[in-house]
C-alpha cells in the first residue's frame, strides 16, 4: 500500500503571492458593502468568476474561496486522506460562484490542490470610478495578508516585486526527529512597508507559517537560495527492500 500525497506540496519550493499555490494564500478585507465581482486567473488566463456580497447584515466573518475549484483542468475536487483539512469551510466542494461576508470580515483566497499559479482580481460590480475598492492579489496592500508555509528546508530570499528596497531572508531548519512527535510552531509575522520587511531575517521551522502583512504595495516572492538537505551522509530515500537483520553474537546466559 502506498500513501497518496499531492506532489505539488513537495516539488514547489518557491512562493509568489501573485501566483498562489497550495503553500500560500491571501486574505483581503472588503471594507465597503456592496456586490463585488471577482475573476480567477491561472497565469494570464481567466478561468472563472465569482461574486462576493459584502453585507453589513451578514453573519459571515470569513469567506473561504478555493481558487482551485475554478480550475476545470483539475480532475476532481481536492480531498485528503483524512477528508477534511483543518475544518475549513468550503473545501472539497464545487466552486461556488457567490459568496457572502460581513464588511468587517475577511475573504480568504487559497488553493486546495494542484499546481496552483492562481491570481484573483475583484472589484465592485457597480460603477466605481475611483476603483477604490479594487483588489488584485498580484498587488497586495491595505493590510492584505499573504500566508505562506515553506516546507523545503533551506535558505530563501524574500523580495517585494513592488518595492526594490524590500529584501529579506528566511531560513527553514531541517526537520529533526525529537523525543516527541514534531508539530510546527505558531506562525511568524513579517510586516511589508515602504521601508522594507520588518523583520528582514526570520528563522522558521519546517511547516511553520509566516504571515506577510502588506502595509504598502506588495508582491511577495520567496526563492530558494540554498537548499538544506540535512546531515551529511543521510541515506538516500529508496525502497527499503528486504534486508537480513544481522544479529550480534549471542552471549550465554548463565544461570
Amino acid at each position: 500500500m502506498k500513501m497518496t500525497f499531492d506532489q505539488n506540496l513537495f516539488t514547489q519550493v518557491g512562493l509568489d503571492s501573485g501566483s498562489l499555490t497550495m503553500l500560500g494564500g491571501v486574505t483581503h478585507r472588503f471594507l465597503e458593502a456592496g456586490q463585488y465581482r471577482g475573476v480567477v486567473y491561472r497565469g494570464g488566463e481567466s478561468i472563472g468568476k465569482f461574486y462576493i456580497n459584502v453585507d453589513k447584515n451578514s453573519p459571515v466573518a470569513q469567506a473561504n474561496i478555493d481558487l482551485a475549484a475554478f480550475d476545470t483542468s483539475l480532475p476532481a475536487p481536492a480531498t485528503t486522506a483524512t477528508g477534511t483539512i483543518c475544518g475549513c469551510q468550503g473545501e472539497g466542494t464545487k466552486a461556488e460562484t457567490t459568496f457572502e461576508v460581513n464588511p468587517k470580515g475577511y475573504a480568504v483566497f487559497h488553493v486546495s490542490a494542484g499546481a496552483g499559479g492562481y491570481a484573483v482580481r475583484a472589484s465592485k460590480a457597480a460603477e466605481d470610478p475611483k476603483q477604490q475598492n479594487q483588489f488584485d492579489s498580484r498587488e497586495l496592500n491595505r493590510e492584505d495578508i499573504f500566508s505562506a508555509v515553506v516546507l523545503r528546508p533551506g535558505t530563501y530570499s524574500v523580495s517585494n516585486g513592488l518595492n526594490t528596497k524590500a529584501k529579506g531572508k528566511i531560513t527553514i531548519g531541517y526537520p529533526k526527529i525529537g523525543k516527541t512527535a514534531y508539530r510546527p510552531p505558531s506562525p511568524a509575522k513579517i510586516v511589508c512597508s515602504e521601508g522594507g520587511f520588518e523583520p528582514a531575517n526570520v528563522e522558521l521551522q519546517p511547516g511553520q507559517a509566516v504571515l506577510f502583512q502588506a502595509n504598502a504595495p506588495s508582491r511577495i516572492t520567496l526563492e530558494l537560495v540554498k537548499a538544506d538537505d540535512g546531515p551529511a551522509g543521510r541515506p538516500e530515500h529508496t525502497r527499503g527492500g528486504w534486508k537480513k537483520a544481522a544479529l550480534p553474537e549471542q552471549k550465554r546466559k548463565k544461570a
Partner: peptide, 19 residues
C-alpha cells in the same frame, strides 16, 4: 494536519493534509 495557510486569528484556512 498542520496549518499551511493560517488565517489572521490563529485559525487555519489551508492545512497540510493529515494522512
Amino acid at each position: 494536519s498542520f496549518c499551511i495557510v493560517p488565517d489572521p486569528w490563529n485559525g487555519c484556512l489551508v492545512g497540510f493534509p493529515g494522512f
